[in-house]
Amino acid sequence: MALQEKSKLQPAPDDGLVVRIRGALLSQEGVLFLILVVSVIVLSLNTDRFLQPSNLLTQARLLVEVGLVALPMTFIIITGGIDLSVGSILGLTAIMIGIGWQTLGLPLELAIVLALAIATLCGFVNGLFIVRVGVPPLIMTLATLALYRGLAQGISEGRSVRGYPEWFTALGQGDFLGLPTQIWFLIVGVIVSWVILARTTFGRTLYAIGNNETGARFSGLNVDRAKLLIYSYSGFMAGLAGWIFVSRVTTTRSDMGSGLELDVIAAVVLGGTSIFGGTGSITGTVIGMVLIQLLKNGLALNGVTQDATIIVIGLVLIFAILVNNFIQGQRQKS
Protein backbone atom coordinates (compact mmCIF):
# COMPACT_ATOMS: atom_id res chain seq x y z
CA MET A 1 0.00 0.00 0.00
CA ALA A 2 2.71 2.40 1.02
CA LEU A 3 4.66 1.46 -2.05
CA GLN A 4 1.72 2.23 -4.24
CA GLU A 5 1.22 5.62 -2.70
CA LYS A 6 4.83 6.39 -3.27
CA SER A 7 4.52 5.41 -6.90
CA LYS A 8 1.59 7.73 -7.25
CA LEU A 9 3.44 10.66 -5.78
CA GLN A 10 6.64 10.26 -7.69
CA PRO A 11 6.62 7.96 -10.69
CA ALA A 12 10.40 8.28 -10.71
CA PRO A 13 12.88 5.63 -11.85
CA ASP A 14 13.53 4.57 -8.24
CA ASP A 15 10.17 2.76 -8.24
CA GLY A 16 10.38 -0.91 -7.51
CA LEU A 17 9.96 -3.16 -10.51
CA VAL A 18 7.11 -4.96 -8.77
CA VAL A 19 5.19 -1.73 -8.36
CA ARG A 20 5.64 -0.78 -11.96
CA ILE A 21 4.51 -4.17 -13.20
CA ARG A 22 1.59 -4.00 -10.82
CA GLY A 23 0.69 -0.56 -12.12
CA ALA A 24 0.88 -1.74 -15.71
CA LEU A 25 -1.29 -4.74 -14.95
CA LEU A 26 -3.84 -2.68 -13.10
CA SER A 27 -4.20 -0.37 -16.06
CA GLN A 28 -7.03 -1.17 -18.41
CA GLU A 29 -4.62 -1.98 -21.22
CA GLY A 30 -2.77 -4.42 -18.97
CA VAL A 31 -5.92 -6.24 -17.94
CA LEU A 32 -7.08 -6.35 -21.54
CA PHE A 33 -3.78 -7.67 -22.74
CA LEU A 34 -3.98 -10.45 -20.17
CA ILE A 35 -7.50 -11.28 -21.30
CA LEU A 36 -6.27 -11.28 -24.89
CA VAL A 37 -3.41 -13.65 -24.13
CA VAL A 38 -5.60 -15.96 -22.07
CA SER A 39 -8.32 -16.10 -24.69
CA VAL A 40 -5.84 -16.77 -27.47
CA ILE A 41 -4.40 -19.68 -25.47
CA VAL A 42 -7.81 -21.06 -24.61
CA LEU A 43 -9.11 -20.70 -28.14
CA SER A 44 -6.08 -22.38 -29.70
CA LEU A 45 -6.28 -25.42 -27.41
CA ASN A 46 -8.98 -27.14 -29.36
CA THR A 47 -8.12 -26.22 -32.89
CA ASP A 48 -4.79 -25.84 -34.63
CA ARG A 49 -6.27 -23.77 -37.41
CA PHE A 50 -6.67 -20.74 -35.17
CA LEU A 51 -2.99 -19.79 -34.87
CA GLN A 52 -2.16 -20.49 -38.53
CA PRO A 53 -0.60 -17.39 -40.12
CA SER A 54 -3.03 -17.56 -43.04
CA ASN A 55 -5.98 -17.50 -40.68
CA LEU A 56 -4.56 -14.63 -38.67
CA LEU A 57 -3.90 -12.64 -41.85
CA THR A 58 -7.46 -13.19 -43.00
CA GLN A 59 -8.70 -11.98 -39.64
CA ALA A 60 -6.47 -8.93 -39.94
CA ARG A 61 -8.04 -8.21 -43.31
CA LEU A 62 -11.52 -8.38 -41.83
CA LEU A 63 -10.48 -6.21 -38.93
CA VAL A 64 -9.47 -3.17 -40.96
CA GLU A 65 -12.85 -1.52 -41.48
CA VAL A 66 -13.79 -1.58 -37.82
CA GLY A 67 -10.24 -0.70 -36.88
CA LEU A 68 -10.00 2.40 -39.05
CA VAL A 69 -13.25 3.81 -37.71
CA ALA A 70 -12.36 2.91 -34.13
CA LEU A 71 -9.40 5.32 -34.16
CA PRO A 72 -11.35 8.58 -34.54
CA MET A 73 -14.10 7.05 -32.39
CA THR A 74 -11.54 6.82 -29.59
CA PHE A 75 -10.86 10.55 -29.98
CA ILE A 76 -14.55 11.34 -29.96
CA ILE A 77 -15.39 9.20 -26.96
CA ILE A 78 -12.43 10.69 -25.08
CA THR A 79 -14.02 14.11 -25.52
CA GLY A 80 -17.23 12.70 -24.06
CA GLY A 81 -19.00 12.52 -27.42
CA ILE A 82 -20.09 9.64 -29.59
CA ASP A 83 -20.59 9.07 -33.30
CA LEU A 84 -23.35 6.64 -34.20
CA SER A 85 -23.45 7.66 -37.86
CA VAL A 86 -20.20 5.96 -38.97
CA GLY A 87 -21.91 2.87 -40.36
CA SER A 88 -24.23 5.04 -42.42
CA ILE A 89 -21.36 7.18 -43.69
CA LEU A 90 -19.65 3.96 -44.75
CA GLY A 91 -22.76 2.93 -46.66
CA LEU A 92 -23.12 6.36 -48.27
CA THR A 93 -19.47 6.31 -49.37
CA ALA A 94 -19.89 2.90 -50.92
CA ILE A 95 -22.95 4.13 -52.83
CA MET A 96 -21.22 7.32 -53.93
CA ILE A 97 -18.30 5.33 -55.33
CA GLY A 98 -20.65 3.07 -57.22
CA ILE A 99 -22.98 5.82 -58.44
CA GLY A 100 -20.18 8.22 -59.32
CA TRP A 101 -18.44 5.56 -61.34
CA GLN A 102 -21.30 3.83 -63.05
CA THR A 103 -24.21 6.26 -63.19
CA LEU A 104 -22.35 9.55 -63.50
CA GLY A 105 -19.61 7.99 -65.62
CA LEU A 106 -16.74 9.51 -63.68
CA PRO A 107 -13.33 7.85 -63.71
CA LEU A 108 -13.19 5.48 -60.76
CA GLU A 109 -10.33 7.41 -59.14
CA LEU A 110 -12.33 10.61 -59.23
CA ALA A 111 -15.40 8.82 -57.86
CA ILE A 112 -13.34 7.58 -54.93
CA VAL A 113 -11.97 11.04 -54.17
CA LEU A 114 -15.46 12.50 -54.44
CA ALA A 115 -16.90 9.84 -52.14
CA LEU A 116 -14.18 10.41 -49.56
CA ALA A 117 -14.84 14.15 -49.73
CA ILE A 118 -18.53 13.55 -49.16
CA ALA A 119 -17.77 11.24 -46.23
CA THR A 120 -15.59 13.92 -44.67
CA LEU A 121 -18.34 16.45 -45.28
CA CYS A 122 -20.82 14.16 -43.51
CA GLY A 123 -18.58 14.04 -40.47
CA PHE A 124 -18.05 17.79 -40.69
CA VAL A 125 -21.81 18.38 -40.69
CA ASN A 126 -22.10 16.27 -37.52
CA GLY A 127 -19.40 18.34 -35.92
CA LEU A 128 -20.86 21.61 -37.10
CA PHE A 129 -24.25 20.98 -35.53
CA ILE A 130 -22.70 19.64 -32.34
CA VAL A 131 -20.39 22.63 -32.00
CA ARG A 132 -22.41 25.55 -33.37
CA VAL A 133 -25.96 24.60 -32.41
CA GLY A 134 -25.14 22.56 -29.35
CA VAL A 135 -27.00 19.40 -30.33
CA PRO A 136 -25.90 16.53 -28.06
CA PRO A 137 -23.61 14.21 -30.07
CA LEU A 138 -25.71 11.14 -29.28
CA ILE A 139 -28.86 12.61 -30.79
CA MET A 140 -27.14 14.44 -33.63
CA THR A 141 -25.43 11.31 -34.88
CA LEU A 142 -28.57 9.26 -34.26
CA ALA A 143 -30.38 11.62 -36.62
CA THR A 144 -27.63 11.44 -39.22
CA LEU A 145 -27.48 7.67 -38.75
CA ALA A 146 -30.95 7.66 -40.26
CA LEU A 147 -30.30 10.57 -42.61
CA TYR A 148 -27.09 9.30 -44.24
CA ARG A 149 -28.39 5.76 -44.54
CA GLY A 150 -31.58 7.17 -46.00
CA LEU A 151 -29.59 9.18 -48.54
CA ALA A 152 -27.65 6.05 -49.49
CA GLN A 153 -30.89 4.14 -49.96
CA GLY A 154 -32.63 6.96 -51.79
CA ILE A 155 -29.75 7.67 -54.15
CA SER A 156 -29.16 4.02 -54.99
CA GLU A 157 -32.86 3.07 -54.87
CA GLY A 158 -31.75 -0.30 -53.61
CA ARG A 159 -29.69 -1.18 -56.68
CA SER A 160 -26.23 -2.63 -56.29
CA VAL A 161 -23.21 -1.84 -58.44
CA ARG A 162 -20.84 -4.58 -59.55
CA GLY A 163 -18.06 -5.20 -62.04
CA TYR A 164 -15.22 -3.18 -60.58
CA PRO A 165 -11.87 -3.37 -62.38
CA GLU A 166 -9.05 -5.53 -61.12
CA TRP A 167 -6.83 -2.75 -59.76
CA PHE A 168 -9.70 -1.54 -57.61
CA THR A 169 -10.28 -4.86 -55.91
CA ALA A 170 -6.56 -5.31 -55.26
CA LEU A 171 -6.84 -2.97 -52.31
CA GLY A 172 -9.32 -5.15 -50.50
CA GLN A 173 -8.20 -8.56 -51.67
CA GLY A 174 -4.54 -8.27 -52.64
CA ASP A 175 -1.34 -8.36 -50.64
CA PHE A 176 1.43 -5.80 -50.30
CA LEU A 177 4.82 -6.65 -48.79
CA GLY A 178 3.46 -9.91 -47.49
CA LEU A 179 0.50 -8.42 -45.64
CA PRO A 180 -3.06 -7.76 -46.83
CA THR A 181 -2.93 -4.38 -48.56
CA GLN A 182 -5.48 -2.65 -46.37
CA ILE A 183 -3.57 -3.57 -43.22
CA TRP A 184 -1.02 -0.91 -44.18
CA PHE A 185 -3.76 1.71 -44.02
CA LEU A 186 -4.61 0.54 -40.53
CA ILE A 187 -0.98 0.50 -39.42
CA VAL A 188 -0.40 4.03 -40.67
CA GLY A 189 -3.71 5.14 -39.14
CA VAL A 190 -2.84 3.63 -35.77
CA ILE A 191 0.60 5.21 -35.68
CA VAL A 192 -0.66 8.63 -36.72
CA SER A 193 -3.57 8.51 -34.29
CA TRP A 194 -1.35 7.30 -31.48
CA VAL A 195 1.11 10.10 -32.04
CA ILE A 196 -1.67 12.68 -32.22
CA LEU A 197 -3.34 11.49 -29.06
CA ALA A 198 -0.34 10.77 -26.91
CA ARG A 199 2.30 13.18 -28.12
CA THR A 200 0.66 16.40 -29.28
CA THR A 201 -1.08 19.31 -27.61
CA PHE A 202 -4.09 18.49 -29.74
CA GLY A 203 -4.29 15.10 -28.05
CA ARG A 204 -4.02 16.68 -24.63
CA THR A 205 -6.79 19.08 -25.65
CA LEU A 206 -9.08 16.12 -26.32
CA TYR A 207 -8.49 14.74 -22.82
CA ALA A 208 -9.05 18.20 -21.36
CA ILE A 209 -12.37 18.51 -23.18
CA GLY A 210 -13.46 15.13 -21.90
CA ASN A 211 -12.51 15.87 -18.32
CA ASN A 212 -13.98 19.33 -18.11
CA GLU A 213 -15.17 21.06 -21.23
CA THR A 214 -15.86 24.40 -19.58
CA GLY A 215 -12.50 24.26 -17.92
CA ALA A 216 -10.83 23.53 -21.23
CA ARG A 217 -12.61 26.47 -22.81
CA PHE A 218 -11.56 28.82 -20.05
CA SER A 219 -7.97 27.63 -20.37
CA GLY A 220 -8.02 29.07 -23.86
CA LEU A 221 -8.15 25.76 -25.69
CA ASN A 222 -9.95 25.86 -29.02
CA VAL A 223 -12.62 23.32 -28.09
CA ASP A 224 -14.84 24.00 -31.09
CA ARG A 225 -12.09 23.55 -33.63
CA ALA A 226 -10.92 20.33 -31.96
CA LYS A 227 -14.41 18.87 -32.06
CA LEU A 228 -14.98 19.88 -35.67
CA LEU A 229 -11.69 18.22 -36.60
CA ILE A 230 -12.36 14.92 -34.85
CA TYR A 231 -15.85 14.54 -36.25
CA SER A 232 -14.56 15.31 -39.74
CA TYR A 233 -11.75 12.81 -39.13
CA SER A 234 -14.38 10.26 -38.15
CA GLY A 235 -16.28 10.91 -41.38
CA PHE A 236 -13.11 10.57 -43.42
CA MET A 237 -12.12 7.30 -41.78
CA ALA A 238 -15.62 5.90 -42.24
CA GLY A 239 -15.29 6.85 -45.90
CA LEU A 240 -11.91 5.15 -46.16
CA ALA A 241 -13.38 2.06 -44.52
CA GLY A 242 -16.21 2.22 -47.04
CA TRP A 243 -13.77 2.29 -49.94
CA ILE A 244 -11.89 -0.72 -48.53
CA PHE A 245 -15.15 -2.52 -47.86
CA VAL A 246 -16.34 -2.07 -51.45
CA SER A 247 -12.98 -3.19 -52.71
CA ARG A 248 -13.02 -6.27 -50.49
CA VAL A 249 -16.50 -7.50 -51.37
CA THR A 250 -16.43 -6.09 -54.96
CA THR A 251 -20.00 -4.89 -54.84
CA THR A 252 -21.87 -1.84 -53.62
CA ARG A 253 -25.04 -2.01 -51.62
CA SER A 254 -26.79 0.65 -49.61
CA ASP A 255 -27.03 -1.48 -46.47
CA MET A 256 -23.28 -1.83 -46.16
CA GLY A 257 -21.87 -1.14 -42.76
CA SER A 258 -25.15 -1.15 -40.88
CA GLY A 259 -24.42 -2.01 -37.30
CA LEU A 260 -20.77 -1.04 -37.75
CA GLU A 261 -21.12 1.63 -35.09
CA LEU A 262 -21.87 -1.04 -32.50
CA ASP A 263 -18.75 -3.06 -33.30
CA VAL A 264 -16.65 0.08 -33.28
CA ILE A 265 -18.00 1.40 -30.00
CA ALA A 266 -17.64 -2.05 -28.47
CA ALA A 267 -13.97 -2.15 -29.51
CA VAL A 268 -13.28 1.34 -28.18
CA VAL A 269 -15.08 0.87 -24.89
CA LEU A 270 -13.56 -2.56 -24.44
CA GLY A 271 -10.20 -0.87 -24.93
CA GLY A 272 -10.72 1.07 -21.74
CA THR A 273 -11.90 4.39 -23.12
CA SER A 274 -14.45 5.69 -20.67
CA ILE A 275 -17.77 6.48 -22.28
CA PHE A 276 -17.95 9.50 -19.96
CA GLY A 277 -14.84 10.90 -21.60
CA GLY A 278 -11.49 11.93 -20.24
CA THR A 279 -9.65 8.63 -20.35
CA GLY A 280 -8.63 6.17 -23.01
CA SER A 281 -5.84 5.38 -25.40
CA ILE A 282 -5.18 4.17 -28.92
CA THR A 283 -3.26 1.20 -27.49
CA GLY A 284 -6.34 0.11 -25.61
CA THR A 285 -8.53 0.51 -28.69
CA VAL A 286 -6.15 -1.59 -30.78
CA ILE A 287 -6.16 -4.36 -28.18
CA GLY A 288 -9.93 -4.04 -27.95
CA MET A 289 -10.52 -4.50 -31.65
CA VAL A 290 -8.02 -7.33 -31.98
CA LEU A 291 -9.63 -9.07 -29.02
CA ILE A 292 -13.10 -8.82 -30.53
CA GLN A 293 -11.97 -10.08 -33.93
CA LEU A 294 -10.01 -12.98 -32.44
CA LEU A 295 -12.89 -13.90 -30.15
CA LYS A 296 -15.26 -13.98 -33.10
CA ASN A 297 -12.93 -16.07 -35.21
CA GLY A 298 -11.64 -18.31 -32.42
CA LEU A 299 -15.12 -19.14 -31.22
CA ALA A 300 -16.23 -19.87 -34.76
CA LEU A 301 -13.29 -22.22 -35.26
CA ASN A 302 -14.13 -23.92 -31.96
CA GLY A 303 -17.50 -24.80 -33.35
CA VAL A 304 -19.50 -22.02 -31.71
CA THR A 305 -22.04 -20.71 -34.19
CA GLN A 306 -21.63 -17.18 -35.44
CA ASP A 307 -24.77 -16.16 -33.62
CA ALA A 308 -23.43 -17.20 -30.25
CA THR A 309 -20.36 -15.05 -30.72
CA ILE A 310 -22.60 -11.99 -30.74
CA ILE A 311 -23.72 -12.93 -27.24
CA VAL A 312 -20.15 -13.40 -26.11
CA ILE A 313 -19.22 -9.95 -27.42
CA GLY A 314 -22.14 -8.35 -25.63
CA LEU A 315 -21.16 -10.07 -22.40
CA VAL A 316 -17.49 -9.18 -22.81
CA LEU A 317 -18.44 -5.54 -23.38
CA ILE A 318 -20.45 -5.28 -20.17
CA PHE A 319 -17.91 -7.34 -18.23
CA ALA A 320 -15.05 -5.14 -19.43
CA ILE A 321 -16.81 -2.02 -18.20
CA LEU A 322 -17.60 -3.59 -14.86
CA VAL A 323 -13.93 -4.49 -14.45
CA ASN A 324 -12.96 -0.99 -15.52
CA ASN A 325 -15.35 0.59 -13.02
CA PHE A 326 -13.99 -1.69 -10.31
CA ILE A 327 -10.39 -0.78 -11.09
CA GLN A 328 -11.21 2.92 -11.19
CA GLY A 329 -12.89 2.56 -7.82
CA GLN A 330 -9.88 0.74 -6.37
CA ARG A 331 -7.57 3.39 -7.70
CA GLN A 332 -9.58 6.19 -6.22
CA LYS A 333 -9.57 4.44 -2.86
CA SER A 334 -5.83 3.92 -2.76
Partner: peptide, 14 residues
Protein backbone atom coordinates in the same frame (compact mmCIF):
# COMPACT_ATOMS: atom_id res chain seq x y z
CA UNK B 1 -39.67 6.05 -53.67
CA UNK B 2 -39.90 4.49 -50.19
CA UNK B 3 -36.14 4.26 -50.25
CA UNK B 4 -36.09 7.91 -49.16
CA UNK B 5 -38.06 7.14 -46.02
CA UNK B 6 -35.12 6.86 -43.72
CA UNK B 7 -33.67 10.12 -44.94
CA UNK B 8 -36.96 11.83 -44.12
CA UNK B 9 -36.93 10.18 -40.71
CA UNK B 10 -33.45 11.50 -40.04
CA UNK B 11 -34.37 15.00 -41.18
CA UNK B 12 -37.42 14.89 -38.95
CA UNK B 13 -35.34 14.08 -35.87
CA UNK B 14 -32.90 16.80 -36.78
Amino acid sequence: SPFWLQAVQGLLIL
